[in-house]
Write a protein that binds this DNA or RNA. Structure first.
Length: 636
DNA sequence: TACTCACAG
DNA sequence: GGCTGTGAGTA
């Protein structure tokens, strides 16, 4: 007989219960040197090219081909070139100061940090592409960062064992082996708390785990119960998904499969690249005691808190024995809790801890389980976004006054609009931020000031340009306030940051109902436009005057038929020569626009219009038509 | 709500 | 070291 019950197996079919079942099966998949892989594929390079992804002069990702030369993330571009003369250094995409769209950087080019801002958009996109592949197969995926995800494999394993699976095609022998259990399930010839029958004969041969199986050196590993079979099938599933990722994107991944998140995460990191590591329940201690990990390698224990715990539990330092030490010294939870609290009290005379005494018990519970590989947490499919920020660290005089702040805010507003739009299109949801915040940083890192306020999506329908302007318009008064208070001490800034947060996420086409049960908002299913209820009259009037004056400007310029006028931005030129040079600029711009996903037929605001708006915002209110027109006139 | 800090990749 | 992100604490 099995030591597991039907209930524990059936719980796998329930998203709420699967993670805590003793038969749980969780995968963690991690992209290897993700940015470098994205750049390698994006620039049509080969896996054998020593690619590094570069931001200014520092390296942010090192491909495995480049690692062969001993290059690490700590190298500068120069020192990496010394180690590998034919290094392929790819700079990240960038925004130009004052522009709304990012452009890929051609190979061999290195933009100046003084007038550019890095865009990580290409990587985010690829990250989402991969997430979607996981979601195509698996019903419960938690994106942990741009390049890693947790997967609750419960339902998939359940399907393989008890139903017909279309994810893993079973051969005749495999089907035959599972015939009995499937029949029992189908005919319900069991009580829920009955023990399961023994695992089928030859399970181990028929369902071999795929990947790097952790086991005791030199000894045979033998499947004995259903948890072994579940983990083995989990490894078949992650293998299948990783192969799908590879055929779709050419990206290599590493992966860990075990019964819980923290273990799978450590396992996925164990052997890289392109390898999955499988930890059967009976091999957990062997894995944790293999001399490769510390208590501080567990998620959330990597920082100060982890150090404090090592200290409080008097763990041996530098010999990777902390996990073993804690497990062997305190076989009983209560003893561990008492030991930590006693020492906490003793030490707190001399030092302050990052967590209060009352948290010791829950900390110990977690540590007690972590060191036994039995700390279980649910896989949460996380919301699309909580906040979105665009930020730049400044050097030199890159941001020396309010006008510079405004120029960078254009970039930030452009980036945020771009990213929100992308997310909306991909998820078919509307993302409506409710608060906005601007932060400035000066010389010493610690002096950061921020100002935030409500973000009012006022208009009943909003184009992308209008949304961009609204972000910019809302940000400028905030930065002006900061400028007013701190201008004597902060310039030149060492950092500027714009954050949208508190997102309301609404399914397109669905109707939100307010507290009186009336529809609050309406959306056209086929429309990408954002429709919202009107706001205060005052707010509307303010906007209207702005948009009207802007339209009028456009018209005014169009009227001047006698000169050379660009038909895209209505800028005037003295002669055909200047005009055609200017057209080249639009050609380049449009290429980027295509890349950024803005449809070409939509008008976008070009740089000269942006400058105009900056000045208007800074001037404080709507300027006269005359002066607006002046900005559109050629300089000469 | 506004702001700061810790942690992570 | 630069650029993001999240969650918790504080007033």
């Amino acid at each position: 007989m099995s030591k597991f019950t039907w209930r524990e197996l059936l719980d796998l079919n329930d998203k709420e219960k699967a993670w805590k079942s003793s038969l749980s099966c969780i995968g963690h998949i991690d992209m290897n040197a993700f940015f470098a892989q994205v750049d390698q594929v994006r620039y049509n390079l080969s896996v054998n090219d020593p690619v590094v992804s570069v931001q200014w002069s520092s390296i942010i990702a090192v491909s495995y081909a480049a690692r062969k030369y001993g290059i690490s993330r700590l190298d500068t571009l120069e020192s990496a070139r010394v180690k590998c003369p034919h290094l392929v250094a790819v700079h990240t995409a960038t925004f130009l100061k004052g522009e709304r769209i990012w452009k890929s950087t051609p190979l061999g080019k290195f933009p100046s940090p003084y007038e550019h801002k890095v865009s990580l958009d290409p990587y985010r996109r690829e990250g989402r592409k991969i997430l979607q592949i996981f979601q195509k197969h698996c019903d419960l995926v938690q994106k942990a960062s741009v390049d890693e995800s947790f997967l609750d494999l419960g339902r998939l394993v359940f399907k393989v064992l008890l139903l017909d699976s279309d994810e893993v095609m079973l051969n005749e022998q495999q089907l035959e082996a599972l015939k009995e259990i499937k029949a029992m399930y189908k005919t319900q010839k069991y009580s829920i708390d009955d023990q399961l029958p023994p695992i089928p004969k030859l399970s181990q041969d028929l369902f071999p785990a795929i990947g790097n199986v952790i086991k005791e050196e030199g000894s045979a590993f033998i499947y004995t119960d259903w948890d072994d079979l579940v983990i083995a099938i989990g490894s078949m599933l992650t293998d299948m998904m990783r192969k799908d990722v590879f055929t779709e994107t050419k990206y290599f991944t590493s992966c860990g499969v075990s019964n819980n998140k923290s273990l799978s995460k450590i396992a996925s990191d164990f052997k890289k690249p392109d390898t999955q590591t499988i930890i059967f329940n009976k091999a957990i201690n062997i894995f944790l005691d293999n001399g490769c990990f510390e208590l501080t390698d567990f998620w959330t224990l990597g920082g100060n808190k982890g150090k404090e715990v090592l200290d409080l539990l008097e763990c041996p330092k530098f010999d990777k024995q902390s996990i073993n030490h804690v497990r062997e010294t305190w076989p009983v939870l209560e003893d561990l809790q008492k030991a930590m609290k006693d020492r906490y009290v003793d030490l707190s005379i001399f030092q302050k801890f990052t967590f209060p005494l009352k948290d010791c018990d829950s900390m110990c519970l977690k540590i007690f389980n972590l060191t036994r590989g039995s700390w279980k947490e649910p896989v949460n499919s996380r919301p699309l976004v909580k906040s979105m920020t665009s930020n730049k660290n400044m050097r030199g005089d890159a941001c020396k006054d309010l006008a510079d702040c405004a120029s960078w805010l254009q970039v930030f507003a452009g980036e945020l609009e771009l990213r929100i739009n992308e997310l909306q299109e991909e998820s078919n949801k509307l993302l409506i931020p409710k608060t906005i915040s601007v932060s400035i940083r000066s010389e010493n890192r610690s002096s950061i000031h921020s100002k935030s306020g409500p973000f009012l999506m006022g208009r009943s329908s909003m184009t992308r340009d209008e949304f961009f302007l609204l972000i910019f318009d809302t940000a400028v008064p905030l930065v002006k306030e900061l400028d007013m208070v701190y201008k004597d001490t902060v310039y030149p800034l060492t950092g500027l940051m714009l954050t949208l947060s508190n997102f309301e996420i609404i399914g397109k086409g669905s109707t939100i109902v307010d507290m009186f049960n009336r529809p609050k908002r309406e959306f056209k299913d086929d429309s990408k436009e954002i429709k919202l209820q009107p706001v205060a009259e005052k707010e509307l009037k303010k906007r209207k005057t702005f948009f009207d004056s802007s339209l009028e400007t456009k018209k005014n310029v169009e009227d001047e038929k006698d000169s050379f006028v660009c038909d895209e931005c209505f800028k005037k030129f003295n002669d055909q020569q200047d005009l055609s040079e200017h057209k080249d600029y639009h050609f380049a711009l449009n290429l980027s626009i295509g890349m950024n996903g803005i449809e070409k037929h939509k008008t976008i605001l070009n740089a000269s219009k942006l400058d105009l708006m900056t000045r208007k915002r800074l001037a404080g209110d709507q300027s006269k038509k005359k002066s607006i027109k002046d900005f559109f006139s050629p300089k000469r």
